[in-house]
Design a protein around this nucleic acid. Structure first.
Length: 300
DNA sequence: TGACAGGGGGTGT
DNA sequence: ACACCCCCTGTC
């Protein structure tokens, strides 16, 4: 395959202004695992069989670029990927920040924060990899899965671009071959989930389009998928903003900021859904961004 | 510079 | 409550 040059930078329509830290939070804050920061300050990301680069201008607007052969695809898919056709600013304004000083502070700190809408099946795969792993390690596993088991969909310069293996493809891969991708005990979850899905054509696609409670109940049937992973998959891969994943970070943050000493993850999840309402998942994203920034301040 | 603990964004029993 | 796996990070 001959090398394919990247297109000129083009403006991304209908995008609210952003700052570099907010863009980093969107692309590398633990919701997506296939974006990397390049040395020139731009970002490159892959999802399904799409690839794009993003560049933030001084005025907060984004420019994008794609390999010439994939420009049409990127132009069509990028807006939906980045915001899912939603006005996150307007959505955030409906959160109860007027009666919640901490939430108000988080909203002010990360203006323009949004939740990308990722492909459902890929999101499931990424979050099956995520148990007790930090972002760098999850990105590494996902990169190896793509490189070793995903189809090549483009080549640019000296970079060969792979998509992630589909669930049908994963079902054919022996577990030892998966383990080589640094998956550890997660390899078994992925293998068993792949087999489960292979036996049920259409199950995953149906699940994506079910209402939140029904979709979550179905995801919980999958081996390796518990409350937290199910909520992440629905929030990041199906646009269900009522999903409220409670991991150890959010648990600690909620206990501290909302005075919930001794509360269990399930109790905190219930509190979050009740307190933040139908867009609790968006609120969670702001709290999360705040905690990560706080942790960096603490260690600096 | 290089070895060595310790711990990690969870699930299942 | 603890095992599951094993790589990353910080520290000496």
């Amino acid at each position: 395959m001959p090398a394919d040059p990247w297109s000129d930078w083009q403006p991304l329509a209908g995008q609210p202004p952003l700052t570099a830290p907010v863009l980093a939070e969107i692309l590398d804050g633990g919701q997506t695992f296939r974006w990397t920061a390049r040395t020139d300050g731009t970002w490159q990301g892959v999802w399904s069989d799409c690839v794009a680069r993003l560049k933030l201008q001084a005025n907060g607007r984004l420019l994008w670029s794609a390999p010439a052969k994939l420009v049409v695809r990127a132009e069509k898919m990028l807006p939906g990927y980045l915001a899912g056709g939603r006005d996150f600013g307007a959505l955030a304004d409906t959160l109860p920040w007027r009666s919640d000083a901490h939430l108000a502070r988080c909203l002010r700190a990360f203006p323009g924060l949004l939740i990308p809408r990722q492909p459902f099946g890929e999101t499931l795969l990424c979050f099956l990899c995520s148990a007790t792993k930090q972002i760098v390690q999850i990105k590494q596993m996902v990169a190896l899965l793509a490189e070793r088991h995903g189809k090549v969909f483009a080549q640019t310069g000296d970079t060969v671009l792979h998509r992630l293996p589909t669930w049908a493809e994963l079902a054919e891969i022996p577990e030892p071959a998966l383990r080589v991708c640094l998956l550890g005990f997660r390899a078994r979850y992925i293998k068993e989930t792949a087999r489960f899905l292979a036996a049920r054509p259409g199950w995953l696609e149906e699940t994506e389009h079910l209402p939140y409670p029904a979709a979550k109940a179905r995801l919980l049937e999958l081996p390796g998928v518990g409350e937290k992973v199910a909520d992440c998959v629905l929030l990041f891969g199906a646009g269900k903003l009522e999903a409220f994943p409670v991991d150890t970070w959010i648990l600690k943050a909620m206990v501290r900021h909302y005075d919930l000493d001794g509360w269990s993850p399930a109790q905190v999840a219930h509190f979050g859904r009740t307190h933040f309402g139908p867009l609790a998942g968006l609120a969670q994203q702001y709290l999360f961004a705040w905690e990560r920034a706080e942790a960096r301040r603490g260690s600096a």
